[in-house]
Design a protein around this nucleic acid. Structure first.
Length: 107
DNA sequence: GACATGACCGCAC
DNA sequence: AGTGCGGCCATGT
C-alpha cells in the first residue's frame, strides 16, 4: 500500500509542528516542512497557512522566509498583522526583517 | 495532460 | 548585498 502520505496527514503534521513553536522564536517555511517530515514542501506550507481561517489558534505569524523576512509585501494588511503579532510576543521586526540574531527555532 | 500560479529555497553572479 | 534562475510540491484552469 502506498498512501500513508495523504493530504490530511501532511496537513496534520504541519499544524502539529507549527503549534510547537515557542513564543519568541520563529522558523521558516522550508524548515517547518522539514521538521514536519516533509522536506521540500515549503511552498505547500505557505498554501496551508493561506487556507487557515482568520480565527485560527495556530501561530502562523511565527513562520517567515529563510532570509529572515516576512513573506508579505511591506505595508499590506497581512504584513502589518504578522508584524504586530510578532512584536506583541517580543520579536522585533525592523524593515520587514527579524531583528534578532537567533530567530531560528530548532525542535 | 500541459501550463500557470504561489505566505518557498539554495546557489551562482 | 541585491538579483536571477532553476528546483520543488500541490492546485486550478
Amino acid at each position: 500500500m502506498v498512501e500513508p502520505t495523504t493530504k490530511e496527514s501532511r496537513t496534520q503534521a504541519v499544524y502539529t509542528t507549527l503549534n510547537h513553536i515557542p513564543v519568541g522564536k520563529v522558523t521558516s517555511y522550508g524548515k517547518l516542512a522539514s521538521y514536519a517530515g516533509l522536506p521540500g514542501y515549503g511552498r505547500y506550507v505557505g498554501k496551508l497557512l493561506r487556507e487557515l481561517p482568520a480565527d485560527t489558534s495556530l501561530p502562523w505569524h511565527r513562520v517567515i522566509r529563510s532570509s529572515g523576512q516576512i513573506a508579505f509585501p511591506p505595508g499590506s494588511e497581512s504584513f502589518t498583522r504578522q508584524k504586530t503579532r510578532l512584536e506583541k510576543e517580543g520579536v522585533s521586526v525592523i524593515n520587514g526583517r527579524i531583528a534578532i540574531k537567533d530567530f531560528q527555532w530548532t525542535p
